[in-house]
């Protein structure tokens, strides 16, 4: 990279890495994303989002994205008698970089309100430090409650996004199956979903992909002896 890192504040460099990982994460989940967004150079990042004192201005980093066609398809349940034309369980997402020193119930509620007001389907909040225990408690209970957006709110700490873990060579590729693909898989192997090995939704890769309970991921490993082989896990 041509960027001369010595000229930038360490906090700005840090934030640049967090920002890029966040964009990559949205792309890998299937949201529409331009390459130039995930590949923004440090100098350009500094020019756009740096403050005069050299620190990053988090309030200018927020962004929203829309799911791609492919993602919409993946998140659409198969048609049934009661629901012949099902809507996808996904929509626009709002990503916010919180700049408060401490994040608690107040910020989380304000954020949820913002998502509702903006008709966002779901949201990701990225904080400088872990939020308070009570805020996490609200978050845990918030999936699908009246207060929050339909698709829920996810929270990351900046530290978690400094490095994109899915780029690590030892992390196998995880691919989300659509409902239809999941049904086919279970039928082919005559399995119940409960018989599949599991992956916790709190697992770092599961968090990265925003897996929801009940979804199935295909995990593709490279093996020296077997070439590639796939296994499947059920998110709990």
């Amino acid at each position: 990279m041509a960027d001369d890192r010595e000229n930038y504040h360490p906090n700005l460099i840090r934030m640049w890495r967090v920002y890029r990982t966040t964009k990559e994460m949205c792309r890998d989940r299937g949201y529409q994303m331009l390459d130039e967004d995930t590949q923004i150079s440090l100098s350009e990042f500094a020019a756009r989002y740096g403050r005069e004192d050299g620190e990053p201005d988090r309030s200018r980093l927020h962004f929203s994205c829309q799911p791609s066609e492919e993602m919409m398809r993946k998140y659409t349940p198969p048609p049934s008698k009661t629901e012949p034309d099902p809507k996808p369980d996904i929509g626009n997402i709002w990503v916010e970089f919180n700049s408060d020193e401490n994040v608690g119930l107040k910020q989380l509620r304000d954020y949820m309100q913002h998502l509702i007001n903006g008709s966002f389907y779901s949201g990701i909040m990225i904080c400088m430090k872990p939020m308070t225990g009570m805020a996490l408690r609200l978050l845990r209970g918030a999936a699908g409650i009246q207060e929050g957006p339909k698709g829920g709110v996810e929270v990351f700490v900046e530290q978690d996004l400094l490095v994109n873990i899915t780029k690590h060579e030892l992390v196998p590729k995880h691919v989300l199956l659509s409902r239809e693909e999941k049904d086919q898989l279970l039928k082919r192997y005559r399995l119940k979903e409960t018989q599949l090995p599991r992956i916790q939704v709190t697992d770092p890769v599961a968090k990265y992909l925003g897996l929801r309970r009940g979804q199935v991921v295909k995990i593709i490993r490279k093996s020296e002896t077997a070439g590639r082989y796939a296994s499947y896990r059920w998110a709990i």
């Binding site: 408060d100 608690g104 308070t132 009570m134």
Partner: peptide, 10 residues
């Protein structure tokens, strides 16, 4: 203590 913390954050 959590109540106090949350009020302080606000």
């Amino acid at each position: 203590d959590s109540l106090i913390e949350e009020r302080n954050i606000a």
